[in-house]
Simulated scan of single mutants.
Amino acid sequence: MKPNYPLLAAVSAVFLFSAQETQARPTFYAGLDYAHLDFNPTEQPGSANLHTAGVHLGVQPSPYLAAEIRAGTGMGSKTFAGSDVKINHYYGAYLLPQLPLHRYLSTYLVAGTTYGKLEISRSLYGHNYTRIERALDFSYGAGIRIKDHEQKGGVSIALEYTRFISRKNVDIDALLMSVSYHF
């Protein structure tokens, strides 16, 4: 499925400009992420569960839109189909159109780009072989955020599902939990 970039840009612009009267100054935030990733090669049955820890920085110019950058690193490796699979690192930039549902709850979409570096190691007949895979792909997902929207600053907690990488030979999906401080 090819993303419709003009439509995404138009929807984001509507959210951004429609909310300029409700919030005079943008809110900045920073936080920590933990992600449970599902590494799913399309040519082999099964998947490997990987874990990452990361940081994010964001700006929220209105209650309806945020922009965020994220970076993280893998935590350990998993054996899959006789090979050790490990996420070395990832980083990305994302737009998050949001819809406040309640004083304490909002839903959001995630759309952006993720770069990831994956290491696949295998030992055959006493020799170690390592292959490095790099991927840059369009990422998309959805999440919920808990924060007191009537209070400036404060802490928020978010839970999201994101497809970070979708290539012809592998999909990498994540269940991501984050804690942010808004200032």
Rank of each mutant, 00 (worst) to 15 (best):
A81M: 14
Y94V: 04
E119K: 01
Q98V: 12
Q44S: 10
Y115K: 12
Y94R: 01
G112Y: 02
G112H: 05
L96Y: 11
T79D: 05
S106W: 03
Y90K: 06
R25G: 08
S83T: 03
I87K: 07
G82N: 09
N88S: 05
I87A: 00
P41G: 07
S83N: 13
I87E: 04
S47P: 06
G82V: 02
S77H: 01
A66G: 09
T73M: 14
A93L: 14
T114I: 13
P100K: 07
P63Y: 13
G58F: 10
M75D: 03
S83D: 11
D38S: 04
P45W: 07
G76C: 07
S47D: 06
V110Q: 02
A111D: 11
G74V: 06
A48E: 07
T114P: 05
F80H: 01
P41K: 00
L32F: 14
P26S: 09
G46I: 00
L50E: 03
Y104D: 13
G126C: 11
S83G: 12
Y91K: 11
Y91D: 11
L95Q: 14
T113K: 12
D84N: 00
D84K: 04
G46N: 07
S77C: 09
P41C: 08
K86S: 01
Y29L: 00
V85K: 07
A111W: 14
Y34W: 05
A67L: 12
S47G: 02
Q98W: 07
K86Q: 06
F39S: 01
N40G: 01
V59I: 15
S106A: 13
Q98Y: 07
Y125D: 10
T52I: 01
I87N: 02
I87V: 08
N49A: 15
E43R: 13
L50P: 04
R70Y: 02
L124Q: 12
G72D: 08
V59T: 09
A67G: 15
L109E: 08
G82H: 07
T79C: 00
I120R: 08
Y94L: 12
